[in-house]
């Protein structure tokens, strides 16, 4: 019997914080790849302290639904799960290369496979691209000659798009910037977007000045965050000038300083994130059959499925 345990931050204040965790758990549960899928939270119930005892598998895969390595993945989660003998060096990571470590969780006296966070997995780049596609409604966004839906894109320019990946910055966690830079570089390497840049909330280059950092008239902005909340729904839209008051909402796209901003919100809410969770578990040895392929297909926006 094989169990997947998704662990996440959760919130005492924001009811939407746990939503992506639950949604992705449901998606994976529906694939039948695991005999059970459990969720545990730092701030909600079941707590990280008690989530493992709700899992009954012989093979338990724990995947942190976090953006980066750092305080939570290296210290809080292993401590709360009671992973005996844990040390961050077991991941042998340069800050973005954590994969898996197998340790006994003393809470249940069983070995568990403790995986690296979803945010630093290479498949997260694909989720950023998927979010770009879903926020523009164009499955070929950025690919000028191949765009299937020029109406949806309605670009005033030559069809090129800029892409801003937004993170917190290093103030709280040095490694969070590493994850941003990592995916920014990978997006750049695809050659699909004219410009790809990392922007930050609390350090230079700042997301507030997004239009100054791009020549492209169309800019896709996606925060590398797990859940929507205060930062992604209030701070960033207001800081970029999409709206004076987040409660009034904003259009997608919104024109700011002659640029059209396609703001995508937290990437972790994109359905394809479930795929990254599966990738993490598969990398750790989980036998999940063709679940990855099925989730990739199933989470495509309907406009894309219709075009297949």
């Amino acid at each position: 019997m094989q169990s997947l345990v998704i662990v996440a931050h959760g919130s005492h204040l924001n009811p939407d914080s746990a939503t992506p965790t639950h949604t992705h758990a449901d998606t994976i549960r529906a694939t039948g790849a695991f005999d059970e899928v459990r969720t545990g939270f730092w701030k909600e119930q079941p707590s990280l302290r008690e989530v493992l005892r709700t899992a009954r598998g012989d093979d338990i895969y724990v995947v942190p639904l976090f953006i980066s390595e750092g305080y939570f993945t290296e210290r809080v989660i292993p401590r709360e799960l009671r992973l005996e003998g844990w040390d961050p060096s077991l991941w042998d990571s340069d800050g973005i290369s954590a994969d898996t470590a197998t340790l006994v969780a003393s809470d249940i006296d069983k070995e568990v496979h403790y995986c690296g966070p979803v945010g630093t997995h290479e498949a997260m780049t694909d989720v950023l691209v998927r979010r770009a596609e879903s926020v523009t409604g164009d499955p070929s966004v950025g690919e000028v000659s191949e765009s299937a839906d020029s109406e949806a894109r309605q670009t005033e320019s030559d069809g090129g798009f800029g892409f801003a990946v937004v993170g917190h910055g290093t103030e709280r966690n040095e490694k969070s910037a590493k994850a941003i830079e990592y995916h920014t570089e990978r997006l750049r390497e695809t050659g699909r977007f004219d410009e790809v840049k990392a922007l930050f909330m609390d350090e230079e280059p700042e997301v507030d000045d997004v239009t100054e950092h791009f020549d492209s008239e169309d800019i896709i902005v996606v925060p590398l965050f797990i859940a929507d909340g205060f930062h992604t729904q209030e701070d960033i839209p207001e800081d970029m000038g999409l709206t004076d008051d987040y409660r009034d909402g904003y259009d997608v796209p919104t024109t700011v300083d002659g640029h059209r901003i396609w703001y995508g919100g937290a990437v972790g809410t994109e359905a394809l994130t479930a795929d990254v969770i599966l990738e993490r578990a598969a990398d750790a040895g989980a036998d999940i059959g063709d679940a990855i392929a099925r989730v990739r297909q199933q989470t495509k926006p309907t406009t894309l499925v219709a075009g297949d």
Binding site: Q45, P46, E50, R53, T54
Partner: peptide
Amino acid sequence: VEAFYPATVVNWHR
């Protein structure tokens, strides 16, 4: 019950 009151059954059982 697990969804309404997470981990309560397992702790009760222990």
